[in-house]
C-alpha cells in the first residue's frame, strides 16, 4: 500500500480526518524550510504538501505567490526541492509527501526523470495544477510507472458530466477546492460543504481532502469531519511571512510559530468527532 493510502486508512480507523499542510519549499530559505518540514509530523501534520516554486503561479493568491518568490530567491530549483525531500525522508519514514506545482519546471527537468527522481527521493504524490485530465497523458504514464499518485483538484465548477473523467484520472486522494478562486482569497461556505462532499462520495471511494479556503482550527475541524481531510496552506504561509525580518529573512520565531499553528490545527481536528463514518 502507498504511504498515502496507508495514512488515510489508518486515520479512518482512528475515526478522524487528516491535516494536510502546505508550505512552499525553500521558503524563506532551505534550512528553515527543512526545519519546519521536519517538525510537521510531530506537530500533527498527517500529509505534507510542498509547493515547488514557479515564476508564474496562475492559480495562487498573493500569499503563496510571495512564498514562491522567496523560495526562488533562496535558490529553489526542481533538483533542490527533490534534495529537500530526500533529507526530510532520512528521518521521516511514514508521513506522505506530496509535491504541488506547475508543469513547466517538471517539463524542463524531463517528466520521466522527474517522476523517477521524485519517487526515489521519497515523494508519494503529485499535484500538477495546470495539467487537467484532458492533458493527463503528459505525465500519467511516468507517474504510474514510478508509483506516484496523481492527486487532482475537483472544483465547484466541475459538473456531474465531467466528474467521472476527473475521478478516473485521480489516485491517492481527491483535493476538493472549496471555493471558485485562487488560493487564500476567500473562505469556504461551510454550510454547502457537507452536501457537496456527499455528492462527490457517491462517485468515488477515494479519500477527499478539502482545501483553498481553510484558515482557522475550527474551519479545519469542520472540513476534516465532513470530508477525510483539511488542507491548510495560505494561513501557514501568512504566519511564516509575518515572522520574517524587514529583508524577508527567517527569524528565531519562524519555525516555532508555524509549528505552533500546525499543533493548534491538529488538536482541533483530533478533538472533532467524525460526523458520518
Amino acid at each position: 500500500m502507498s504511504r498515502i493510502a496507508a495514512r488515510f486508512a489508518a486515520l479512518k480507523a482512528e475515526g478522524r480526518g487528516a491535516l494536510v499542510t502546505f508550505l512552499t519549499g525553500f521558503d524563506p530559505d532551505r534550512a528553515t524550510s527543512l526545519r519546519i518540514l521536519q517538525g510537521l509530523p510531530g506537530a500533527g501534520a498527517d500529509v505534507i504538501e510542498i509547493g515547488v516554486p514557479f515564476t508564474d503561479p496562475m492559480a495562487d493568491g498573493p500569499s503563496i505567490q510571495k512564498a514562491g518568490q522567496r523560495g526562488l530567491r533562496a535558490g529553489a530549483t526542481v533538483p533542490g526541492i527533490l534534495d529537500l525531500v530526500r533529507e526530510l525522508r532520512a528521518t521521516e519514514k511514514d508521513t506522505p509527501v506530496v509535491l504541488m506545482g506547475y508543469y513547466n519546471p517538471m517539463l524542463a527537468y524531463g517528466v520521466a526523470r522527474f517522476c523517477a527522481d521524485a519517487a526515489a527521493a521519497g515523494v508519494d504524490g503529485l499535484i500538477v495544477v495546470d495539467v487537467p485530465p484532458e492533458e493527463a497523458d503528459e505525465i500519467e504514464p511516468d507517474a504510474r510507472a514510478h508509483g506516484l499518485d496523481l492527486i487532482r483538484l475537483i472544483a465547484p465548477t466541475t459538473d456531474e458530466a465531467r466528474l467521472p473523467r476527473v475521478l478516473g484520472a485521480t489516485t491517492g486522494f481527491i483535493y476538493y477546492v472549496s471555493i471558485t478562486g485562487i488560493t487564500g482569497t476567500r473562505s469556504a461556505d461551510y454550510a454547502s460543504l457537507a452536501p457537496a462532499i456527499a455528492a462527490l462520495k457517491r462517485h468515488t471511494d477515494l479519500p477527499v481532502a478539502i482545501g483553498f479556503g481553510i484558515r482557522s482550527p475550527e474551519q479545519a475541524a469542520i472540513a476534516a469531519s465532513v470530508a477525510d481531510g483539511a488542507v491548510v496552506g495560505t494561513a501557514l504561509v501568512d504566519t511564516l511571512a509575518a515572522t520574517l525580518d524587514a529583508e524577508g529573512r527567517a527569524t528565531a520565531d519562524t519555525a516555532p510559530k508555524v509549528l505552533a499553528q500546525v499543533r493548534g490545527l491538529s488538536q482541533a481536528i483530533r478533538a472533532a468527532k467524525k460526523a458520518a463514518a
Partner: peptide
C-alpha cells in the same frame, strides 16, 4: 480536437477553469 498544432497548444489550465 485537443487544441494542438503538432505538439503545441493544448489546454493546460487548472480544473476550476477547465469547464469554462
Amino acid at each position: 480536437a485537443r487544441g494542438r498544432f503538432g505538439e503545441f497548444g493544448g489546454r493546460f489550465v487548472a480544473e476550476t477553469l477547465m469547464p469554462l
